[in-house]
């Protein structure tokens, strides 16, 4: 389902610059309070060939915010929707947890909260050092937050911690974009491998990068028109 939007936020990942440090993954988890075993920001490791003709690739992945997003097309309640910035967003209140979006996504970037989120914090009741360190619930209680490491700004546009029974996914850090900041993964990248901006603005860094380099997207044959582009593959 293609919808006309004012802006089309996109990301370009320069694979030649990427060093595979996973700082993007960690920053995303911290920024978005993403629980253990979920990875809004993720990566594919590919090893191919036979020695000495071998190759290794590290491909960072995240929600592609597709222009023809299958998750949006399949959502029965319009919980998954496109916004004016071209982002594929998720309305947690409308979500019924049918998992059709997860099933429809060709990239496996949508996660379902089968159990109560962040269980391991709540159930980790033994301190690392008895009488010295705190347990997870003690640390959270002391800071008056739901989990020991919690970013309250996430909750400005999406539940700070997504409840049990619904899906969740990358939002391109829409809460940061709303205050003029870049997504956390872009900020955290030590090699400046991630370029972010409005693809509809010809002078944006994303448009310039796409003009200067041949780019690729994941699974182009699915016809989803992803907005995460990869340049300088090696």
């Amino acid at each position: 389902m293609k919808t006309a939007t004012k802006r089309q936020y996109s990301m370009v990942i320069d694979l030649h610059r990427c060093v595979g440090c996973s700082a993007c993954d960690i920053a995303c988890k911290r920024e978005n309070n993403v629980q253990h075993s979920f990875a809004w920001s993720n990566h594919i490791l590919e090893t191919r060939g036979t020695f000495p003709n071998t190759s290794f690739r590290y491909i960072p992945t995240l929600c592609n915010h597709c222009e023809d997003a299958p998750c949006v097309a399949h959502c029965p309640t319009t919980a998954m929707h496109k916004d004016d910035n071209g982002l594929t967003m998720h309305d947690a209140d409308k979500c019924i947890g049918c998992r059709a979006c997860q099933q429809a996504c060709p990239y496996g970037v949508i996660y379902f909260n089968q159990e109560r989120p962040h269980r391991h914090y709540r159930e980790y009741l033994k301190p690392a050092i008895a009488g010295c360190t705190s347990t997870g619930p003690e640390a959270a209680q002391a800071a008056d937050v739901p989990i020991p490491v919690y970013n309250p700004t996430r909750a400005t546009t999406y539940p700070g911690i997504r409840p049990q029974g619904i899906v969740e996914k990358c939002t391109f850090c829409d809460h940061r974009l709303a205050v003029g900041e870049q997504p956390a993964c872009v900020e955290a990248c030590p090699a400046d491998a991630r370029i972010f901006g409005d693809k509809k603005d010809p002078e944006s860094p994303v448009s310039i990068a796409l003009r200067d380099h041949a780019s690729r997207v994941l699974k182009p044959e699915k016809g989803t028109r992803p907005n995460v582009h990869y340049i300088r593959d090696y």
């Binding site: 389902m1 399949h74 309640t77 319009t78 409308k94 019924i96 947890g97 049918c98 089968q114 049990q164």
Partner: peptide, 29 residues
């Protein structure tokens, strides 16, 4: 069965408040 399978079956009323003609599940609902 499908209601049992859903993560939040009591939010299913949203199917009737929001139309998504491209979703087979919406048509099924």
């Amino acid at each position: 069965l499908i209601m049992i399978k859903m993560g939040r079956p009591f939010h299913a009323y949203h199917t009737y408040l929001n139309a998504n003609l491209t979703s087979p599940l919406w048509w099924g609902g």
